[in-house]
Design a protein around this nucleic acid. Structure first.
Lengths: 312, 312
DNA sequence: CTTATGGTGCCATTACTTGTCACCTTATTA
DNA sequence: TAATAAGGTGACAAGTAATGGCACCATAAG
């Protein structure tokens, strides 16, 4: 076996093990101790961050997390990755933020001046705009970790109205319309809730005693946990094609499109305290929506319009 | 020089040249013809897509576009890239779409089963949502190419109102709130215009005769080309902190925030035909905005509210 | 003090890489 | 049709890099 190929396999091996000894390498690759040492030297030259522990029960540790075998990209692929990265980079916060600068450096080191020019030229001609994030989120990585590891957290949560301490178990985090949200199970209220990440003032891991097993719930199905309270109000609106298009662009799990007698309706439920949110949302549909029921919602919307007219 | 290192340099060399002969390699790297041939064999084994042309004036061509020297990523970096890619992948159309599947394959080939599991687990716990694209765009790549190459295009452009043939010279394309837009110079109207890419029904390259040099205009400064027509109307609204936050999330080049006497205003111009757009936009601010001038705009907004109330 | 681990220097052996040379194939053009 | 310039193959000798074995050192745990 050629040395290069062996080093590549070694990289994978080290990746999986995280921790290994010279003996492991000697056995796995059928090489002498001397060669194993030389191979490790080569890997270190290639930039693999290894740390050696001396003495009995010693061995090697892979630092920083794993290093993968090199991947070769075509320049089209580099363009695509570069722009994907740029698109996310413009987020004020993201759990992957830290990696982007090192990736960028790697790309720019490998790319020829000509390609660099091409990238810059493309940079002037394409962009992915998204709703700007006006609030920074400090705990995205911790929330994500808690979601993956099924950990409980105690958070200090401040809305403009009030400030509370909650014990939650995160299920997922997601970015949407300029904000980061955290789907979680509220261990005190014993119910599914969504939190805005920028409103989390502080965060502590709590011991696992009271944790619930949420491994089966993911970002895609967690809203199944959500059940309207007994105060929830059902609503139904007829909706035009333009309205459907608008709804498709920003959906909510508590609402759905239904078709009855070749007419389309937007139907769902809302909690009384969500009024301040649902009224502007429905108003944003303009004439492309018409409230069928409840009449109270109609009245609220009317009041909203009158209020706005008074404000003019 | 070691073989590995030489192959790496060769990759860069081939990258720049796109086309080369054995003689080139022999000269550049001071190797014999036989070695050059053996190196090419190695490169081909590594997956570099080379094509040989026989006979006089023959040589090697690099297919597919260029291949870069392999880049080694940490798994954190792969996670970051993977999610960046996922975020863009969910666009119905993008000029980089084609590359994503090949990149995905490359990642999944290199990643260990354990890491794959981690990626999948992360996949269930993080997402970047953005306004869904409800319309497909067929000519993004062509438009981008035209923008980069300063080419003129004849497009068949259909709005719900009318269908026209335009001769344009694209400056940039960008995705925003669920739509792709194309900044361009309209060669017939001799003015800067923005087109919605999904409304472009067909597209043809026109000969370069009448082209304008737009190389200095980029996605970031093209709106300088935009000048209000003589029919444009100036407006000014006082705006609250909430309103500022909303405006920051979706800005328009024709509007700006100004501060006067410690009070903030949203100021700008609009064309009479943009009324249908600006009224719902201002309405979406709710009470966080108050029209100062013109009175006509105030009246229109009032009429809009009355109209909506009638529609209830 | 023993044991298990990493680490270094040296050298003979083995495996790979290279250059040379003769000769073949393919396409262009005088 | 012959000359030419490009890629392509096989064989072999010479050179270079990689390997294994060995003696021996350093460090830490028990």
């Amino acid at each position: 076996m050629k040395k290069g190929e062996r080093l590549n396999m070694m990289l994978r091996f080290i990746n999986q093990k995280q921790m290994f000894t010279l003996k492991d390498l000697m056995g796995k690759f059928q090489i002498s101790k001397r060669t194993a040492l030389r191979d490790i030297e080569s890997l270190e030259e290639m930039g693999v961050p290894l740390y050696a522990e001396y003495g009995r029960y010693g061995g090697y540790r892979l630092l920083n997390s794993m290093t993968l075998p090199p991947i070769s990209f075509t320049s089209h692929e580099v363009f695509a990755l570069y722009f994907a990265m740029q698109a996310l980079k413009s987020f004020a916060s993201s759990p992957f933020q830290v990696s982007f600068s090192s990736i960028n450096e790697k790309f720019l080191n490998q790319v020829t001046p000509k390609q660099r020019e091409q990238i810059e030229s493309l940079h002037k001609r394409v962009a992915f705009f998204h709703t700007e994030q006006t609030h920074k989120c400090d705990y995205l990585e911790e929330l994500l970790l808690a979601a993956v590891e099924n950990m409980g957290l105690e958070i200090h949560y401040s809305t403009p109205r009030r400030s509370t301490i909650r014990t939650i178990q995160p299920i997922s985090i997601y970015a949407m319309r300029g904000y980061w949200y955290c789907q979680a199970y509220d261990l005190d209220k014993r119910a599914y809730r969504v939190f805005r990440c920028d409103r989390i003032q502080s965060l502590d891991v709590v011991d696992q005693e009271h944790n619930v097993d949420l491994k089966d719930f993911t970002i895609h199905n967690a809203h199944r946990l959500w059940s309207p309270t007994k105060h929830a109000i059902r609503f139904k609106c007829s909706i035009t094609a333009t309205g459907v298009e608008k709804f498709m662009q920003q959906q909510f799990p508590s609402m759905e499109l239904v078709e009855e007698d070749e007419e389309r309706f937007l139907s769902g439920t809302y909690e009384p305290e969500e009024m301040d949110f649902i009224i502007p949302y429905l108003a944003s549909f303009g004439k492309s929506i018409r409230i069928v029921e409840p009449v109270s919602l109609k009245d609220c919307l009317k009041k909203y319009y009158i209020d706005l007219m008074d404000h003019l």
